[in-house]
Simulated assay, not measured.
Amino acid sequence: MRVIAGTARRLALKTVEGMDTRPTTDRIKETLFNMLNAQIPGCRFLDLFSGSGAIGIEALSRGAESAVFVEHNRRAAQCIQQNLSFTRLKDRAVLMQTDVCSALRKMEGEKPFDIIFMDPPYRQGLEREVLEMLADSSLADAQTLIITEAALDTAFDYLDGLGYSLLKYKKYKTNAHIFMKKTEGSTS
């Protein structure tokens, strides 16, 4: 796995050995960032369930102002630290080694992120739990783009009821990216 573009282009990233994380493939990452290209420069990026940190690091490499990485797994958090040091991007990054819900509660009251990306373990309902928390959070407003990576069989039919509108559903062979925003006028 490598950084695709930007200041850290072509640098190889470490990944966590074993099955605890599922790194997003370079091809899917490239497709994702081609879709986000115009929104990345100068943005505040939140990378939830960060794994190796590859998504947030790609955002920083492409010009994001800052990125917050949230990863509970100790080995994965160490991997993120090493990758941030190796890519020389750690000065614009914050790593929170805790579970996502605790991190969101701790950050509550801060200004909204421009982009929130989450890649939770599949089929555990964690994406819904996070979206429920973000629905009433200061961390996301109607301008915040929220992207979830999920298994193809994950249902998102509850989005409207939580105050989100589905913007795009990008399907790949084994998973999908779901793009959404809070509906204008929804509580935040």
Rank of each mutant, 00 (worst) to 15 (best):
V94R: 15
A142Q: 14
A176V: 03
S66A: 15
T25W: 07
E132I: 10
F45R: 03
L139F: 12
A103T: 04
L167D: 13
L60W: 02
D157W: 09
M1K: 02
T154W: 05
L131K: 07
S52I: 01
F33R: 05
Y122W: 14
K168V: 04
D119Q: 05
Y172V: 05
K29Y: 05
M35W: 15
F113H: 01
E108Y: 03
C79D: 12
R2C: 01
N83K: 05
E17T: 12
F113S: 01
F179E: 01
G63S: 11
E30C: 13
G63D: 03
Y172C: 08
L11C: 09
T154I: 05
A176Y: 00
A140Y: 12
Y164V: 04
I116W: 02
I147P: 14
S50R: 03
I116V: 15
L145N: 07
S85D: 08
D99L: 08
Q124T: 05
L126W: 06
R44D: 03
T87Q: 02
R105P: 11
S102V: 13
C43R: 01
T187M: 10
A54G: 04
I116E: 03
V70I: 12
R10K: 15
M96W: 12
A38W: 13
T21W: 07
R74L: 11
R105G: 08
Y172T: 05
H177C: 07
P120A: 05
F156Y: 09
T31H: 11
A38T: 15
V16W: 06
G125L: 05
D26Y: 03
S52E: 02
T15N: 15
L36Q: 10
E108A: 04
K171I: 07
S165M: 13
L159I: 09
G125P: 02
C79V: 14
K173V: 08
G6E: 00
S52K: 01
K181L: 03
R74V: 08
A135Y: 04
L60N: 01
S102M: 14
R9Q: 09
V94L: 15
L152I: 11
P121Y: 08
N37K: 15
R123I: 09
S66G: 10
G185N: 02
S138C: 10
D157F: 06
S138L: 10
K90H: 12
